[in-house]
Design a binder for these strands. Structure first.
Lengths: 155, 155
DNA sequence: ATGGGTGCAAACTGTTTGCAATCTG
DNA sequence: CAGATTGCAAACAGTTTGCACCCAT
């Protein structure tokens, strides 16, 4: 299920002028072994590493996340929580989209190859190299709608 | 070009237990007269109001933006700048999507009715009431790609 | 040995909140 | 008049940055 072995990724990093470090290897591995559909915040990832007994600072976590997004290996998700989440970017397969309830934060995932196709087409015709393509649907789930019979204040 | 006249919106607010205030009216009007394709951050909006001689606090701007998103009148955009932008939500017409270059931040808009149709279908079958549907494409524009012959560091 | 990477702590930015005063219905 | 809304200032969360030390290449 791994896309990059440690040394292939090391080569990839070196080719771009970056260096392979234990922290970077460890972080990529966490994402590569993460169950499909899970996503981590910077804080989540930091805790996870700490619990694993790793010695790593939150700054390095942030710096590595940026690097991985920049290299196209991770995708950055803006869900309902107010902070970013990250997951492995699987451009061709298992690529999915998100449906978020703006009231309770419930998040559903779904796949839809047509969207990726359309997005790819748009990017091509604009000369962009696609790193990520996400359809974000924001709405109100049926539970919240039924709970809303009485007018409620946002927040 | 206005969707809500001041008193129709007042009625809408009252029907939901909210009150119409000069600040809220003013903010909605700004968005309703904003040129299609423009979007404002909370700060932008606050400056705009201040320059117009309005007396309004940044907190109220934030609170009103939340309310408008919650009511489905605005859509919240996560572009490349690190803070949120808002624009009028035009569900049926002029609805568009964004293509963002993660390196230079250049943003292109495009329309694609099929996406909205697919999104709507997904939401329906999950029991969601859609407030917003946005396809976000993140990539690297051709200018940045050609500028990238030498490896560059992120940030 | 060179210069990229890390950890730490401090700074920063955008956003939220508590509270007293004010305005709307 | 009751209760929703505002402005202010202080608090907050997540993220970024400067710098001295460390480690890959």
């Amino acid at each position: 299920m791994s896309f990059y072995s440690d040394d292939v990724w090391k080569a990839e990093l070196n080719a771009r002028g970056y260096r392979s470090t234990p922290q970077r290897q460890k972080i990529l591995n966490i994402f590569q072994t993460l169950t499909q559909g899970n996503h981590l915040s910077a804080e989540d990832l930091h805790d996870l590493l700490k619990n694993d007994g790793e010695r790593i600072s939150l700054s390095t976590v942030y710096r590595t996340l940026h690097l991985l997004v920049y290299m196209g290996l991770l995708r950055e998700l803006e869900l309902a929580e107010g902070h970013k989440h990250y997951e492995l970017n699987r451009p061709m397969r298992d690529h999915h989209h998100h449906l978020v309830c703006v009231q309770c934060g419930q998040t559903l995932e779904f796949q839809e190859a047509n969207i990726d196709r359309i997005g790819q087409g748009q990017a091509d015709s604009s000369g962009y190299h696609v790193l990520d393509c996400q359809l974000m649907l924001y709405g109100i789930c049926s539970d919240c709608r039924s709970r809303n019979t009485a007018p409620t204040a946002p927040n």
